[in-house]
Simulated assay, not measured.
Amino acid sequence: MTKRLLPRLSRALTLSAGVIAVSFTAATAEAADVNIYTARQPELIQPLLDAFTEETGLTTATIFLDKGLEERVAAEGANSPADLIMTVDIGRLDAAKQAGVVQPVDDATLAENIPAEFRDAENEWFGLTARGRVVYASKERVDVDQITYEDLADPKWKGRLCVRSGQHPYNVALIAAYIAHYGEDAAREWAAGLRDNLARRPEGGDRDQAKAIFAGECDIALGNTYYVGKMATNDKEPEQKEWADAIKVIMPTFDNGLTHVNISGIALAKNAPNKDNALKLMEFLSGDEAQKIYAELNYEYPVKPGIATSELVNSFGEMKPDDMPLAEIAKFRAKASEIVDEVGFDNGPQS
């Protein structure tokens, strides 16, 4: 399998640079064997779909929907061509479930490949990759190598923290995890402490936080692990390599010594017209070959046990994922979002 994987990875690297979302028309839907509505950038998943087609002969078609994915599937109803929903963040997967646009899957292969903490208790969504919500720290100005999430609210970091909007799903999920571990009151106090340690109002994406550290605007930031890999290998925008080189990754932890992770994942659409083919793709994406492609090309952590991460990701140090079930964390998303607004997080520091 490794021999077959390497040439596919080579082609994947070439394809990912120029692929765009396929326009979804009736003809496209009828022609494809599996139709995918995705909130993942098409260039990140196309290499996996190409490998699936090569192995099975089944074709795929995708439509990229950064917003309103579940609303579109719901509006299409029984006539929806969507077979699969692929997205990032536990919140978005849970939103699809709550909207009633997905269906449960009882599948032995998925149960074997994907640990219970990375799938829905009712089998309505399944994680495919994990990414740690970690600390980016200046190599020059930060001399610690260990930190807890709680420590980030310590006044010693006052004026030194950068982060994207508190309402971004990645940060909402982190605050929801904090609630799950410590309760609402503690999470509210923590969010206020983070706010007052900010060097500026939240803005941009995770890469922008690394850029700000490189520019000396802040010393630490919250970001996802895979962005570091993407920056460090970005030949098209070499300035991002400088941003990555300016930071070190610190694995923050809860009191249990474990790091918060989020996921990318997949769900079977409620009215999937090509259900059998869709299940084959779900199984493929959870299997060895696809998990290796995720690791080597996207710098994500495979969820299937025994699949190695990339050498670059290994250089960050060992990540021990929090064993709090993501489905449990998802229950606190609404409260986490409320807390962001209650403390005026996106207004920036207030003291």
Rank of each mutant, 00 (worst) to 15 (best):
E203P: 07
L285W: 08
M319R: 07
T109V: 15
K158M: 14
A173I: 05
V163F: 11
L279P: 08
K335F: 00
M319S: 01
Q209K: 11
P349N: 10
A187Q: 06
S351T: 06
L194Q: 07
Y170L: 15
R207M: 10
G348S: 09
T309E: 00
I20Q: 10
E76M: 13
G216F: 02
H168K: 14
G193L: 06
I45H: 00
E237C: 04
L58D: 09
A334S: 02
S80W: 05
S138D: 01
V142C: 11
M282P: 01
K236H: 10
E150H: 08
G306L: 12
N277G: 05
A267M: 12
T233D: 06
Y299S: 07
Q146H: 13
T59S: 15
L6W: 12
A187P: 12
L44Q: 11
G287R: 05
T309L: 00
V144D: 03
L49A: 02
T233F: 09
K236V: 13
G204T: 08
T233V: 10
D206G: 14
E184A: 12
Q46D: 04
V343F: 01
H181I: 00
G127Y: 00
T129W: 05
A12Q: 05
L279S: 09
A176M: 12
L174K: 03
G229M: 06
G159H: 06
G100M: 12
G132I: 05
L44V: 06
M1F: 07
